[in-house]
Design a protein around this nucleic acid. Structure first.
Lengths: 339, 339
DNA sequence: CTGTTAGCGCGTTCAT
DNA sequence: ATGAACGCGCTAACAG
């Protein structure tokens, strides 16, 4: 079944010209009689010619592909970021390689290596677990890389990230303003630096208000189950510590918050009357829950677009290298009814 | 900054051998002194050689890439399918090109064309809007294609899809068994053939029970807002028709059901006491809602895996072409508390 | 205006 | 056991 690809040569033969002529005709390049040009173009359409971007990339050393590396597809946050990236990529006639890492650093490295083998022009890594190591890769290969939401020390690599610390402070401040004092944290064991930042916001803000950051539980992952499991562990601990449930729970992200909500309801606790709850990210469903979730909105789509723009700049300016630059984006506190 | 790629030749020069020798050494191919082989492999690692899969693909005519085409990333259903596809792809050392169509047939065609130009070995299209047209493409290019959840007439193309009709019947049957009689449908204007199947199940099942399929409203899309908008239109129409809300609403998918739930609550209607509700797909959050959503579980992950397996078979058996085949998968009725 | 030559990086014959 | 030559499909550099 595998028809042989029809190539530039085939149409050259048919048109009675040489292959470079065909190439030029199709590119609108160079000066040539519009007679032959039209004839060639017409011919190409007739026999259904599709240029091989692979071969082209091999000679131009530009594949017009970029790699996108995410922890998992099944996360609404990354999906939306990816959507932004893809839009911007398509706008510039770039294709996307996609790979997931499963939050496994080794796999992340392997994936990036494969992408390099695929001759991608650049790579975007979201929520990297090995951020620092890219400096070396960058040095060795010159492969443009942009990191999304990886707080990398040293700051020697392009990155664009959300100000989680500040966002977390806004969230916790809001809880304090509402009068809650026993504020617990549900963290994500696999959240890496992101978890660190959000947790730090919690600790610092509570301390600033002379409140204790006394109770935190880490879920095994950042998904729904992760939130449920954390909540199940949290409640008895609160009972031991305070003789009562926490007045508020500040969650690692919206998804875990949803997982926690289910457990709270199951235990007969009402939200926010008995326990208030906040999320992080403002994923789409957040507004549709009962009660609607108070959270911190990350400009996910825009972050994707900006990351892709930054990458394209790196790709096109490789003659005069742009110094590594960290773009930090601000979120927005979204107050709904869960807290 | 763009370091020139280090190639097989570079390491040949360093090892004092010819490039074919290096190629063979790296492939474990042919017979050769394990001394030189080891030396070459070591050398390759030292200088950080990464083979160009592009060049390799050009000569072997096999890129080890497949294209994945989805309507949008921001849909939990497709995300999970994609996850399955990616896992199976990685298992076979295949990379994934990803593109979204935005449910635009023209863009879908353009995207597939680009993928062909990228020399992908095959393509998986999820929820295609132009299913029939692939037969022609297949005929012209011999490019293996597998369709997911595109009910294509004529059945002349490989596809794997979920039995939406049967699933829909189960759902509506369940509603009838629970004693609901005024059962409305919230459809998806952009749902294409999928909407047709699910709607048909609703109509047929109601008729079989001598109940009228009297009220259906289409949301503008299959997302949360789509569900909300549909519900807002549905309620007054039900009032006109029945002088009361519907007793149950059978929704196009879980996401729209969530959108509808929010509206129902807003209008003071309790679920399922006042209005029962069903979804479709069993996306992850479905079980975590209040109330947990009764729905029909599609084996999303497995569908992805199976699609990729089917595609790989097509790719590897292209000498003796496999006849087009439709694999139909059965879902599972998940009864929770919303109906 | 167009054809010739060369080469991107690799794998695959053939020779040796 | 290894090297020389060729070609995958395309574009870039020169010729003419």
């Amino acid at each position: 079944m595998a028809k042989k690809r029809i190539s530039i040569k085939d149409i050259a033969k048919l048109a009675g010209v040489s292959s470079p002529t065909v190439s030029r005709a199709l590119h609108g390049d160079g000066r040539m009689s519009s007679a032959t040009r039209n004839r060639i173009i017409q011919l190409a359409n007739e026999i259904g010619y599709t240029p091989s971007l692979v071969a082209r990339g091999l000679v131009t050393q530009r594949s017009h592909c970029v790699g996108l590396v995410v922890p998992t597809f099944a996360d609404p946050f990354h999906s939306e970021v990816a959507q932004g990236i893809e839009e911007e990529a398509r706008r510039h006639h770039y294709s996307l390689f996609l790979a997931s890492t499963g939050v496994d650093p080794a796999r992340e490295l392997a994936v990036v290596r494969t992408m390099h083998g695929r001759q991608v022009d650049g790579i975007i890594v979201s929520a990297s677990r090995v951020g620092n190591q890219y400096a070396e890769l960058l040095h060795d290969t010159g492969l443009p890389i942009v990191l999304i939401n990886a707080h990398v020390a040293g700051n020697n690599i392009h990155s664009i990230y959300h100000d989680d610390y500040k966002g977390g402070c806004q969230l916790v401040d809001h809880l304090i303003e509402r009068g809650y004092r026993r504020i617990a944290y549900i963290g994500n064991k696999r959240g890496g630096q992101i978890d660190v930042e959000r947790r730090r916001a919690w600790i610092d803000t509570l301390h600033a208000a002379r409140l204790p950051a006394a109770l935190a539980v880490n879920g095994p992952n950042g998904r729904l189950q992760g939130g449920s499991i954390a909540a199940e562990q949290l409640l008895p601990q609160a009972q031991t510590l305070w003789g009562a449930p926490p007045q508020a729970i500040y969650c690692y992200n919206d998804t875990m918050a949803i997982g926690a909500m289910a457990v709270l309801r199951q235990q007969g606790l009402r939200i926010p009357t008995d326990v208030a709850l906040t999320g992080f990210d403002d994923i789409d469903v957040a507004a549709f829950l009962e009660p609607p979730l108070t959270t911190l909105r990350q400009p996910r789509h825009k972050m994707g677009v900006e990351a892709m723009k930054a990458l394209l700049t790196l790709i096109n300016e490789e003659s005069n290298p742009v110094p590594p630059q960290a773009t930090i984006m601000q979120g927005e506190l979204i107050i709904r009814h869960s807290a």
